[in-house]
């Protein structure tokens, strides 16, 4: 049985990743939606038709990473908040990660943040690169973070670096 059914934490081999080559070309999305659920807005909203859900609405979305240009529209429009982006074209040190975010207060560009992984653990520090929240995103914000490159596939959440003592997973 997959571990995520026990704790809600996906593993890197539970979903499809864009190749290293593609990630190094520029921003591209990663969809972390692995079950057959009745949902399809991602496939309808992509202006480049990079996401398809074939046949039944419950089928799993498939991404054509070559078609995706990382515009981010699908990230803010996924009701499962399950789409992220990664960009490894920004040098050897740092990478960019895009995250949908529905909390207040919003961070500001330049803020330093604790970087948090899929399991809710703080695994490093980074900075906020951009905060987008146009009206069309309907109150979901899209946050771009700069993270150490080796964490480019791990970071899924962040918190302002002030509060220490994050909750431990037992």
């Amino acid at each position: 049985m997959s571990q995520y059914l026990r704790d809600g934490v996906l593993d890197l081999d539970d979903f499809e990743l864009p190749s290293k080559q593609r990630r190094e070309k520029g921003r591209v999305i990663i969809i972390e939606c692995v079950q057959e659920i009745p949902c399809n807005p991602c496939s309808e909203i992509c202006p480049r038709n990079a996401i398809t859900i074939k046949g039944d609405i419950t089928n799993i979305p498939q991404v054509d990473f070559e078609k995706c240009n990382g515009c981010g529209i699908c990230i803010a429009n996924c009701p499962g908040l399950a789409i992220f982006s990664v960009n490894e074209s920004l040098g050897q040190e740092m990478a960019e990660v895009g995250i949908p975010y529905e909390f207040k207060p919003l961070p500001e560009t330049g803020d330093s943040v604790d970087l948090i992984d899929r399991a809710g653990q703080v695994v490093g520090t980074g900075t906020v690169k951009r905060v987008l929240q146009p009206k069309s995103y309907d109150r979901t914000a899209l946050i771009y973070l700069m993270v150490p490159r080796e964490l480019s596939l791990q970071i899924r959440f962040f918190r302002k670096s002030l509060k220490s003592g994050n909750k431990k997973k037992s």
Partner: peptide, 15 residues
Amino acid sequence: YQVHASKLVRCGTPI
């Protein structure tokens, strides 16, 4: 659904 569980767990609330 996994997507709902994942978005909670990454905020630090364990299931």
